[in-house]
């Protein structure tokens, strides 16, 4: 086992995939015994994705609904198992972990969800929500837990006087802070933020984003920031990966991606985000719908909607290739010139 050097990414996935298949129910199994065919449709939620995150980096993961960004986040956080591929934490592959390493990796990677109301147990008091995990894992002694929880609440901007309250007694922004404090309680080094500000009002969203930036410095954290909001991701991230139907189509440092998007999908996304300060305008429109992940188009998934599609795009899947130092894009257009 090698020790993690500064160059080793804190977290890396290589060619990771997640397939969801419907399991046959009783009647279908019975019919199957008599030779009936079972309609085993498989959703390729995440399809052969590779991504490495360096220590202290913020990587934004952007995509529309159904593109697999949350599934990827959950696999990274260890909530759902991967179907294929390799997951490394500080250079150690997950298949090689012993029990102690597995637990350490589980605790070091925490996740913050979109809707704090459905991710906080409504029947538990805040002090138990935040304090339970560190107590169970023996990180904090039982007599020190009260101070530990108070300290965490202060750090995320909550009044420790409220620790006997239940989640429903808080506003949306405060509830999200409880979710953040709960994640921080087990001293993680890597946070997956899955649409963590999407449910919040604009003025509250700014407060929580500021909190994320403060905590990153205070706790020396690394983020995988999943969002559909390009403005939020641009503000926070060092690097951005754009996903479309289970695949990363473009990945680049934030400023470069926003200044000169390479992939036609990225370009379309950036053009169509309503932005304050543009004034009245006519929206250019990407034709068509997001295809169903049950039945994705062959070749490049984006080709039915792409203004530059060529015959090749419908047949061959473009690989994610380096187009400039640090910039990756999966588009056949890059091969032409």
């Amino acid at each position: 086992m090698t020790t993690a050097s500064a160059e080793t990414p804190i977290l890396e996935v290589r060619r990771i995939s997640k397939r969801f298949a419907r399991t046959p129910d009783f009647a279908e199994r019975l019919a199957g015994m008599f030779g009936a065919k079972f309609d085993a449709r498989v959703v390729h939620a995440v399809d052969d994705v590779s991504l490495a995150v360096k220590h202290g980096e913020v990587v934004g993961l952007v995509g529309e609904s159904g593109c697999g960004k949350s599934t990827l986040g959950r696999m990274v956080a260890g909530i759902i198992p991967k179907s294929d591929g390799e997951l490394y934490f500080e250079g150690a592959e997950s298949a090689m972990w012993n029990a102690a390493q597995a637990q350490a990796a589980q605790l070091a990677v925490q996740i913050i969800f979109q809707d704090p109301m459905s991710s906080l147990n409504p029947r538990k008091r805040v002090r138990d929500i935040i304090g339970e995990a560190p107590l169970v894992h023996g990180m904090v002694a039982r007599d020190a837990i009260a101070d530990y929880v108070s300290d965490l609440m202060l750090k995320v901007g909550l009044d420790p006087g409220y620790k006997r309250r239940y989640p429903h007694q808080f506003s949306g922004g405060q509830r999200q802070r409880i979710g953040i404090a709960r994640a921080l309680a087990v001293k993680p080094r890597f946070l997956v933020c899955d649409e963590a500000v999407a449910a919040l009002d604009v003025s509250i969203q700014a407060q929580v984003l500021n909190l994320f930036m403060d905590l990153k410095d205070a706790f020396n954290l690394t983020y995988l920031f999943i969002s559909h909001d390009l403005g939020v991701v641009r503000h926070l991230s060092d690097r951005v990966a754009i996903m479309y139907l289970g695949r990363i189509v473009e990945m680049a440092p934030t400023t470069e991606l926003y200044a000169t998007p390479n992939h036609p999908y990225t370009r379309a996304l950036l053009e169509e985000v309503p932005q304050v300060g543009t004034g009245k305008r006519i929206y250019s429109v990407v034709k068509g719908e997001i295809p169903s992940p049950l039945n994705p188009p062959p070749g490049c998934h984006f080709h039915p909607r792409c203004p530059h599609a060529m015959p090749k795009c419908a047949i061959e899947q473009p690989a994610l290739k380096q187009v400039a130092p640090g910039r990756f894009s999966a588009c056949h257009l890059n091969d032409q010139n």
Binding site: S203, Q205, A206, N210, G231, V232, R234, L236, Q275, G277
Partner: peptide, 24 residues
């Protein structure tokens, strides 16, 4: 003013967002 200033794309990247204190 606060609402408009707190929009991320109106702020310099990576800097603290200007925020409205408190909650509605």
């Amino acid at each position: 003013r606060g609402l408009i200033d707190s929009i991320p794309s109106r702020n310099e990247r990576g800097k603290r967002l200007s925020q409205i204190p408190g909650a509605p």
